[in-house]
Computed example of a mutant assay.
Amino acid sequence: MTARHQQVADDLRRLIASGALAIGERLPPETQLAARYRVSTPTLREALELLRAEGLIEKFQGRGNFVRRPVERLAYPHGAANGLHMNVSSGEITAGVDLSAHLGTPLDTLITEYVCVSHRGDTPQSIAHLYVPNGTPYTTDATSDSPWGDDLVLAASETAPAAYSTDLVTARFPTAAEAQSLRISTRMPVLAVERTFITDDGEVVAYAHLVLPGDRTEATFVTPIGTATETTEKKAEAR
Score class of each variant (00 low, 15 high):
Met188Asn: 02
Ile198Ser: 01
Tyr207Met: 01
Thr199Arg: 01
Leu191Cys: 09
Val190Cys: 14
Asp200Ser: 08
Arg187Phe: 09
Leu212Trp: 04
Leu212Val: 14
Ala206Ser: 06
Val190Leu: 09
Asp200Pro: 03
Val204Lys: 09
His209Met: 04
Ala179Met: 11
Met188His: 00
Glu194His: 13
Arg195Ser: 15
Ser181Gly: 03
Phe197Trp: 07
Arg195Phe: 08
Phe197Cys: 02
Leu182Ser: 08
Val204Tyr: 04
Val211Ser: 10
Ile184His: 11
Thr199Ala: 00
Gly202Asp: 03
Leu212Ser: 12
Val211Gly: 12
Leu210Ser: 10
Arg183Cys: 05
Thr199Gln: 06
Ser181Ile: 04
Ala177Trp: 11
Arg187Thr: 13
Glu178Lys: 05
Phe197Leu: 06
His209Thr: 07
Gln180Asp: 04
Tyr207Asp: 07
Asp201Cys: 03
Thr199Tyr: 01
Phe197Glu: 03
Ala177Arg: 09
Val211Ile: 14
Leu210Arg: 12
Ser185Thr: 07
Glu194Ser: 05
Glu194Phe: 14
Gly202Val: 11
Leu210Gly: 13
Ser185Gly: 13
Leu182Val: 07
Val211Lys: 01
Ala208Gly: 15
Glu178Ala: 08
Leu182Gly: 02
Arg187His: 15
Ala206Asn: 04
Ala176Gln: 11
Phe197Asn: 01
Leu210Ala: 15
Met188Gln: 01
Val190Lys: 06
Ile184Arg: 08
Ser181Asn: 06
Ala179Asn: 12
Gly202Glu: 06
Val211Trp: 00
Tyr207His: 14
Leu182Pro: 11
Ala192Asp: 02
Val211Cys: 12
Val211Phe: 13
Ala176Tyr: 02
Leu182Asn: 02
Ile184Cys: 13
Leu212Tyr: 05
Thr186Arg: 15
Met188Arg: 02
Thr175Asp: 10
Gln180Ile: 02
Thr175Lys: 08
Phe197Asp: 01
Arg195Val: 04
Ala208Pro: 13
Leu212Pro: 13
Met188Leu: 05
Ser185Asp: 13
Gly202Lys: 02
Asp200Leu: 03
Val205Ile: 11
Ala176Val: 13
Ile198Trp: 05
Thr186Pro: 05
Ala208Ile: 05
His209Tyr: 15
Ala192Glu: 09
Thr196Phe: 01
Val211Glu: 06
Ala208His: 13
Asp201Lys: 01
Glu203Leu: 11
Thr186Tyr: 10
Tyr207Ala: 08
Arg183Thr: 05
Thr196Gly: 04
Thr186Phe: 08
Ala176Asn: 10
Val193Arg: 14
Leu212Ile: 04
Val190Gln: 09
Arg187Gln: 14
Thr175Arg: 04
Phe197Thr: 01
Val211Asp: 13
Ala179Val: 06
Leu191Tyr: 11
Leu210Cys: 09
Thr196Asn: 10
Glu178Gly: 07
Ser181Tyr: 02
Ala179Phe: 15
Thr199Lys: 07
Ala192Gly: 01
Gln180Lys: 10
His209Pro: 01
Thr186Val: 14
Ile184Gly: 11
Ser181Arg: 06
Ala206Gln: 01
Val193Gln: 15
Ala176Leu: 01
Asp201Pro: 00
Ser181Gln: 15
Thr199Ile: 03
Leu191Gln: 09
Ala206Glu: 08
Ala176Phe: 10
Leu191Arg: 06
Glu194Gln: 12
Val204Glu: 03
Val211Gln: 07
